[in-house]
Design a protein around this nucleic acid. Structure first.
Lengths: 113, 113
DNA sequence: AGATAATGGTTATTTTAAAACACATAAATT
DNA sequence: AATTTATGTGTTTTAAAATAACCATTATCT
């Protein structure tokens, strides 16, 4: 990430936990396939330590590292399913019929004075 | 990411595409909820451009940004499901009965000389 | 059509993530 | 038990991620 921001300093607990779980999943997948950190790192073109960090759920690691590891496991498609608009029932409900290209801040009462 | 690596320079096409799709999903979810880039950025504590980059699927953006956006949408759990060991049938099949804590490189013939 | 506001793009600056190397620890194999 | 090797931990270096500020463009609303 670089350059300290509120997110990297103190991610919401739920975010932190979801990353730790994701990292653990990736580690399990790697070990099941009997791949070393080094082998995985070479496959995706990064340093061994970066793979290790991802498996620990380090928040500042780039999405590309996670995506590439999934790709090695043949699971790249799972990432595309995340936040899939078709499955986002709440989003569908909220959406007005128009499907706007831009959001527009709601006008509140104290906006006009 | 920082400090040039092969992954950020030229991610595998499938990786690139899965990130673009994920980013598009996040954008759709945001617009449906009528949130501006700025509003999302403030919620998760980053600059507006970082959110924009994530929606474009920029590979070097940190996983925390993606995770935090999902969290805003109430979708943080979806990330933990990715590479879920329970659903990894291939991994289960490959795994030997022991569930090792470390991988071990296969000994090839030309390893011993 | 005009006004307003969201988004895109640029540049400059700051800060740190990842690389690279070395050494320590601990797990797996023989 | 001994050996091998994967993984952990620490430091230094440096390329780039993120910020900030500004202007251009374009979508949305009245």
């Amino acid at each position: 990430m670089t350059r300290r921001n509120a997110l990297s300093l103190a991610p919401p607990y739920i975010v932190e936990r979801s990353l730790v779980t994701l990292g653990a999943n990736l580690r399990t997948a790697r070990l099941r396939r009997n791949l070393t950190l080094q082998e995985m790192a070479e496959k995706i073109g990064v340093d061994r330590h970066v793979v290790s960090d991802a498996e620990k759920g380090k928040p500042s690691t780039s999405i590309a590292v996670y995506a590439a590891m999934l790709w090695v496991f043949g699971m790249a498609g799972q990432l595309s399913q995340v936040a899939d608009p078709e499955s986002d029932e709440e989003g569908k409900a909220l959406e007005s019929a128009r499907a706007p290209k831009r959001a527009r801040r709601e006008r509140t009462l104290d906006d006009n004075f």
